[in-house]
Design a protein around this nucleic acid. Structure first.
Length: 548
DNA sequence: GAGTTTGAAACT
DNA sequence: CAGTTTCAAACTC
């Protein structure tokens, strides 16, 4: 053992042998100490308080820092055992040369004292608190954000990332981004991968494979990888961040990712584009600042020529399928359902009247009375007494729909779901007052439900098919553009005027054009929902952000 | 477990 | 700010 090198325990008792080279200033980390949560008065309170106070002071912002601030590495450290999912003790560091006073040390970077680590000559402990705090100050001097979370821009907090297992970390984004060169961002060398998040436009990695739709990544997670859940969650995240809504990688999706991430399968054209992207040998998520915003290929080529820019990923349906659209669709389906019920009832009434006429003329001496009446009433279509109530119930359906139609109040999917229950209740109530026997009434209800289900599913299918068709058109367009650009690699791809893009209608538009349902979907749109359409129904170029 | 690889952090 | 060095974790054998 070389002089000065001692075990953690020994170092704890001894004075530091390597005083910091230069401490720019002595920080008063106790200033805000009293404002910390009580829990902070634990073993790591000093460090955390110091960092929180320092960060708050330096950034002048109110930051909700996790009590335990973790370094990128430690933050993504497997707090939960990857294999069995059981809680795992925090890993101990093995530092030898940093005295655990630099960010190389996971413990130090995490803002915690070394405890039971295998480090040598450790100063990251209570006994060396002064030295430690000086090191903290020095580190913060160098980088005020040194102890701040690196995974941000996420609806899930760092706490989620740390505590709720890796699956939930996928939504985040590395603030600084990684700079990987050889690992394809598919090994734990990569901070993004380690944090279980996709690389973003912040990254400067080379030959990145850590993007949504990456086959390599998929293979990694889909195969025998123990993190299948992570992959699935990632797919969900991708859908939320990209395909639906405008969050996520809205500002920087890549063509490569986009086409590979399509749910419609990958064609040869896709792969051509993928190759174009790969030619860049850089993170496909990084956008070029000079490429025409409306032309993914130009961007790709531009990016390839510059060698320093990255492609931008944009899902085909980004900003097209919005949460509001989903709500709209829900509303439409409810209306479809109501209409189906009404139509069904009317038809049955009509048929029954027909039938009754025939019966009366056919057998004027029909069986009397109670049995006959019962039979009649028993018929689901019999409206002599039960009809009224049934009809009323369907009218109430319609009435509700009409109210919605007036746009009195948009209903959430949850409300709509509850409405189904209400409708159940209404039907049941009508049964009680109307008197048809229960089993026959159930039969009627079942038929109505079947009809409603059929209509709803049909409508839903049609909507999805239209959406898919439009996406395919756009996909093929971009694919052909990429192929052309690949063929003429020396020159830029076809520059596409932003106005000449293939307009991607929103689901609302698709639904509006639907011929499977007589009621105009547009009637149910709250004014706000016309957000992305112009007067003539075209997608507004300002809001239609498919301008790759 | 030793040696190698890797990329962030630190340094120049 | 770019290039280089240091460092410790991840990885390989």
């Amino acid at each position: 053992m070389e002089p000065g090198v001692q075990s953690n325990a020994a170092a704890a008792a001894a004075a530091p042998e390597f005083p910091p080279k230069k401490l720019v200033r002595q920080l008063d980390f106790t200033a805000n100490f009293g404002t910390l949560p009580a829990a902070a008065a634990q073993s790591q309170a000093h460090a955390t308080a110091a960092m929180q106070s320092q960060v708050a002071t330096s950034s002048r912002t109110s930051i909700s820092m996790p009590l335990k601030i973790e370094s990128p590495r430690s933050r993504s450290r497997p707090v939960y055992d990857v294999k069995d999912g059981t809680p795992k003790k925090q890993k101990q560091c093995n530092c030898k040369h940093s005295r655990c006073l630099k960010l190389y040390c996971e413990c130090f970077a995490s803002g915690v004292h070394c405890d039971g680590c295998n480090c040598v000559n450790c100063c990251n402990n209570v006994e060396n608190e002064a030295v430690r705090q000086e090191a903290v100050g020095l580190t913060l001097e160098r980088n005020p954000n040194a102890f701040r979370p690196k995974i941000g821009n996420s609806p899930h907090s760092i706490r989620d990332i740390r505590e709720d297992s890796a699956e939930f970390a996928l939504v985040g984004k590395h603030n600084k981004g990684c700079h990987c060169k050889k690992s394809n961002c598919l090994k734990k060398y990569c901070e993004c991968f380690q944090a279980n998040i996709l690389c973003s436009e912040n990254c400067k990695c080379i030959d990145c494979k850590n993007f949504d739709g990456s086959e390599e990544r998929r293979a990694l997670f889909h195969g025998d990888h123990p993190n299948n859940l992570s992959y699935m969650q990632q797919a969900a995240n991708a859908a939320l961040n990209g395909a639906i809504g405008s969050s996520g990688y809205v500002s920087s999706p890549s063509l490569k990712k986009k086409l590979k991430g399509l749910p419609f399968g990958t064609s040869a054209k896709d792969q051509a584009i993928h190759r174009v992207a790969q030619l860049n040998q850089v993170n496909p998520l990084k956008t070029s600042g000079t490429a025409p915003p409306g032309n993914p290929v130009a961007r790709a080529v531009n990016s390839a020529s510059s060698g320093s820019s990255k492609l931008v990923y944009r899902p085909l349906l980004a900003d097209i399928v919005q949460p509001e659209d989903v709500k709209e669709l829900c509303k439409l389906l409810v209306v479809v359902s109501a209409e189906a019920a009404k139509t069904f009832s009317d038809r049955k009434v009509h048929e029954e009247k027909h039938k009754q006429k025939g019966d009366q003329t056919e057998s004027s001496h029909a069986l009397s009375n109670q049995d006959g009446d019962h039979n009649k009433k028993a018929l689901p279509d019999d409206r002599s007494s039960g009809t009224t109530s049934d009809k009323m119930s369907t009218e109430e359906f319609t009435s509700d729909s009409t109210e919605m139609q007036k746009g009195s109040r948009p209903m959430s999917p949850g409300t709509l779901a509850l409405m189904c229950d209400e409708q159940d209740t209404m039907l049941m109530t009508s049964q009680n007052s109307g008197a048809p026997p229960r089993f026959l009434y159930d039969q009627s209800v079942t038929e109505v439900y079947a009809e409603q289900e059929r209509c709803v599913l049909t409508e839903f299918r049609d909507c999805l098919q239209k959406l898919i068709t439009r996406a395919k058109v756009k996909e093929e367009k971009y694919a052909s553009m990429a192929m052309k650009s690949e063929a003429s690699s020396s020159q830029q791809g076809p520059v596409i005027n932003g106005n000449a893009r293939v307009p991607m209608p929103s689901p609302a538009e698709l639904l509006r054009s639907s011929n499977t349902f007589p009621i105009s979907f547009h009637n149910f749109l709250p004014p706000k929902l016309g957000r992305s359409t112009t007067e003539n129904g075209n997608i507004d170029s300002k809001t239609e952000n498919l301008d790759l």
